[in-house]
């Protein structure tokens, strides 16, 4: 990844970016997020199939246009988050220096070699191995074999259930939830200054971790992501209880496409889905 390092070095030395949000390798040979503040630190940057994190989440922390542009290393899938954030006026395109990387899939378990089985769920339905846009692009993408999309199978199973069975299914899943809010914190699209789950006057979402309160929390999170979730699957990855959270988001994405032909995170100039309306939206379900 000498190419990546030299690009990042240049970016800082030529003042194209004030700092770089990228990945570094830790002693376990896993990749983790790392902020390179100066030319020396760019030597620590790297990229490989262990680069699971979506770094777009760090934009909210370091966004300060007066300090200069944010340099950020992004996989093609993570780039969608930037599209969505620009759409929502959260960040300006010109405040970013995007270092796109061509991607050949990332692993599910960083302790194991990359293989057909050991791929992130999101890679299984991914069609973009090269970033749609960038300021500079590095690396090469290789074809790789895709295993079956587990989430799509699970989705089909749930679609065939009765309402009672569905509630039972989610009941069993949300019973496991610990309310650690890792799903929220890791999500590039969850950037509210104060989350509805933290509001106490009135308290809309109970802070107790009963299955019912967990259900409400996860439903509301899924709804707040409706037409916004870019499908990076970070929520799935970090959930300590292994709840298939992205299933809800994926469902919302499918509805957005079916009903409105809207694909989230693909066009930074498109109006947002929930922020707009059409007088011809369908309403046969309304009495």
């Amino acid at each position: 990844m000498d190419q990546l390092r030299s690009v990042c070095r240049q970016a800082i030395s030529e003042n194209k970016a004030a700092f770089i949000i990228g990945y570094t390798e830790d002693k376990h040979h896993h990749l983790k997020p790392f902020i390179a503040h100066n030319v020396e630190e760019t030597e620590k940057l790297t990229f490989n199939c262990n680069a699971v994190n979506n770094l777009a989440v760090f934009i909210h922390r370091f966004h300060n246009p007066s300090q200069g542009k944010i340099g950020i290393v992004l996989k093609p899938c993570d780039l969608k988050a930037i599209n969505a954030l620009v759409q929502e006026n959260r960040v300006k395109r010109e405040d970013l220096y995007v270092i796109g990387v061509n991607c050949s899939g990332v692993v599910k378990d960083q302790n194991k070699e990359f293989s057909k089985e050991n791929t992130q769920i999101k890679c299984r339905s991914c069609a973009s191995k090269t970033p749609a846009w960038f300021d500079v692009v590095v690396g090469e993408s290789a074809e790789f074999e895709l295993p079956e999309d587990d989430m799509a199978i699970l989705m089909k199973q749930i679609d065939e259930m009765t309402p009672e069975q569905r509630l039972e299914f989610w009941n069993a899943e949300f019973e496991k939830c610990l309310k650690c809010y890792a799903c929220r914190e890791v999500c590039p699209m969850c950037y509210c200054e104060q989350c509805i789950a933290d509001k106490t006057e009135p308290r809309w979402i109970e802070s107790s971790s009963t299955t019912r309160a967990n259900f409400t929390w996860n439903m509301i999170r899924a709804f707040h992501q409706a037409g916004r979730c870019i499908g990076c699957g970070e929520c799935d990855r970090v959930c300590p209880a292994d709840i298939p959270l992205s299933l809800l988001n994926r469902k919302m994405g499918m509805v957005a496409f079916k009903e409105f032909g809207y694909r989230h995170g693909t066009d930074m100039n498109a109006p947002t889905l929930i922020g707009t309306f059409s007088t011809s939206d369908h309403e046969e379900f309304i009495r």
Binding site: P33, F34, V57, F58, L178, K179, C180, A182
Partner: peptide, 13 residues
Amino acid sequence: GETCLSCGQCAFV
């Protein structure tokens, strides 16, 4: 703490 996301995962496990 630079890249910490402030979730409660560590405390809850």
